[in-house]
């Protein structure tokens, strides 16, 4: 799990030895607080993932926040058009570092079948994206897989280096 070490001193309070990076990353990846930026049917699918049937709590990302100040995972679920684009960008900017973005579903990833003047053809044109989930809408298993992929990515990143704020 990233925390390497062992408890010793039997019958006393346990002690775990580890490295600071490992424990920080371990804490981060199992307490992702998602902000669901839901604009369409993908958000309904996301509700199913958070609910008890698929139980996102097993992976520590169930504590949904609706304030960018309190969340570190922006989960964009649904069509993003040119009108809501500036709002999404502003919400991303308001989130504190470290932060991650999951683009959920065909619309958020590529515009989906909204191939026209109104829809942004992929949210990676305005904010950086860590994990893309294909599907229209994606299966709940795909969303769980994306959370696990994000865990791996958090593990790979250096824990103490700040990500660059986008211009």
């Amino acid at each position: 799990m990233g925390v390497k070490g062992h408890a010793y001193a039997k019958d006393q309070a346990g002690i775990i030895t580890t490295r600071i990076d490992e424990i920080v990353k371990w804490g981060r990846k199992f307490s992702l607080w998602p902000l669901p930026f839901g604009t369409a049917c993908c958000a309904i699918e996301y509700m199913g993932v958070v609910a008890s049937g698929f139980d996102l709590a097993r992976f520590g990302a169930e504590f949904v926040r609706f304030s960018p100040r309190q969340s570190d995972l922006l989960l964009v679920a649904g069509t993003i058009n040119y009108k809501i684009g500036p709002v999404l960008k502003r919400i991303y900017d308001q989130m504190c570092e470290p932060k991650w973005v999951i683009s959920m579903g065909a619309c958020a990833c590529s515009g989906g079948f909204y191939d026209n003047y109104a829809a942004i053809q992929g949210i990676d044109q305005i904010i950086p994206v860590d994990v893309f989930i294909p599907g229209c809408p994606p299966r709940p298993e795909a969303i769980l897989d994306a959370i696990l992929k994000l865990h791996e990515k958090i593990d790979r990143e250096p824990a103490r280096k700040q990500k660059r704020v986008t211009d």
Partner: peptide, 24 residues
């Protein structure tokens, strides 16, 4: 419907289909 910075009228036939406008 359109963003307040949008220029032109989107459902006119001479408006380009992919003419998305970046609004900030």
């Amino acid at each position: 419907l359109c963003h307040h910075e949008f220029e032109g009228h989107a459902l006119r036939k001479d408006y380009p289909m992919m003419g998305g406008q970046w609004c900030s």
